[in-house]
Design a protein around this nucleic acid. Structure first.
Lengths: 198, 198
DNA sequence: TTTGCATTTGACAATTATGTCAAACATTAA
DNA sequence: TTAATGTTTGACATAATTGTCAAATGCAAA
């Protein structure tokens, strides 16, 4: 029992560390040695638990995707109002991406190198449901009229870009870490105001 | 003369090919061999002309940055109206990023690995000038009131994200290549409508 | 034609990263 | 205590990639 607990601990530790190295620090090319060092374990343990570096990568990546996906689903199928759904999604998203700012960027670089795990069918179902809600809001005059897909693009753009591209934007716009943090905090209100007609 | 022209040709060919491999195809880890193959030249020529792989990378990257920067400057210092400046910037940007969709993402991953070539002072000057213009537009009631920095974030987010993250978005949202192209074409109007009060 | 120079090439050396393996170690159950 | 099982380790083999170098090639001027 405690033996099994120990090995699961090490396994989990390696996973967590890899996730941090890859998606918090953005070091996509980190070697197994670097990951092992960061986790404080012997390098070969990575092979022992995960067979290969690639496999570890895949597992960590897939985990992250599933987690993100579940979060989306929970909110979309909640019985919150449309506006509250967006608001809540913003909260959860900002929290997640502050921890792992490089996750989305990594997904992009992987996507057309052939690696893709998205459950497309399920995702389409979620999207279709959401498109309908968007259309209703347009009818009500709460949001600007446009193709629902464009509204979704607007939403994810305004939400994701400043976090995903933070290193670039913070530097180019000449912000300190604190200054940019502040900017992000104000961001939620700005987004809601931009998307909804007053 | 023609000897010099020939070597410059090869040098330029390698540069162009590297740029394409890195920033059009997103293969950031491409080996020197792969780049050489893509250019149809001997691998060691990369060392001959550029000393090292890293150096080639840096040169290509820096070139791209300067180019982007110049483009921005030209528009900001033009005597177009505010709205026309944004409109023109959208045109030029979409054209560029269709060619090199991975450029921005690469910049992000490099930025906090210590590589940064941006001319910060100059960039700040451009931004400050732009912030002033934004403030004026708010006074006029043409755009929503907010911190000018937030308006800039809105603008670049709406513009860049759908292009930068294309591989991810196209896949997740279930678009074909053509469908997504169409979406992007409609995008300019959507952005202008989202940013400006009617 | 020959000399000189830039360019191109293939062979080699050095480095780095990955994965395998057998041995050492620890822990639990008999 | 001992056997059995799972975990950890260091040493080694393999593979991939980069960079150097001397020789070969081609071209242009003397």
């Amino acid at each position: 029992m405690s033996a099994k607990a120990t090995d699961t601990d090490t396994e989990q530790l390696i996973k967590d560390t890899a996730k941090k190295v890859f998606f918090s620090e953005g070091r996509f090319n980190a070697t197994t040695q670097e990951i092992a060092d960061a986790a404080g374990v012997n390098r070969t343990l990575i092979n022992y638990y995960f067979r290969s570096r690639n496999n570890l990568f895949d597992i960590v990546f897939q985990d992250a995707q599933v987690q993100e996906h579940d979060m989306m689903e929970k909110i979309i199928f909640s019985n919150l109002s449309f506006k509250e759904k967006l608001s809540q999604h913003l909260d959860v998203f900002f929290e997640q991406t502050k921890k792992y700012p490089y996750l989305e960027i990594y997904m992009v670089t992987q996507m057309n190198q052939g690696n893709c795990y998205k459950d497309k069918e399920h995702m389409n179902m979620l999207l279709d449901k959401f498109y309908l809600e968007v259309a209703v809001e347009m009818e009500k005059g709460n949001i600007e009229r446009m193709r629902p897909e464009q509204f979704v693009l607007n939403f994810v753009s305004l939400m994701s870009f400043p976090v995903s591209m933070r290193p670039l934007l913070q530097e180019t716009m000449g912000f300190t870490k604190e200054g940019y943090d502040k900017l992000l905090e104000e961001r939620k209100d700005v987004i809601m105001n931009t998307l909804f007609i007053k």
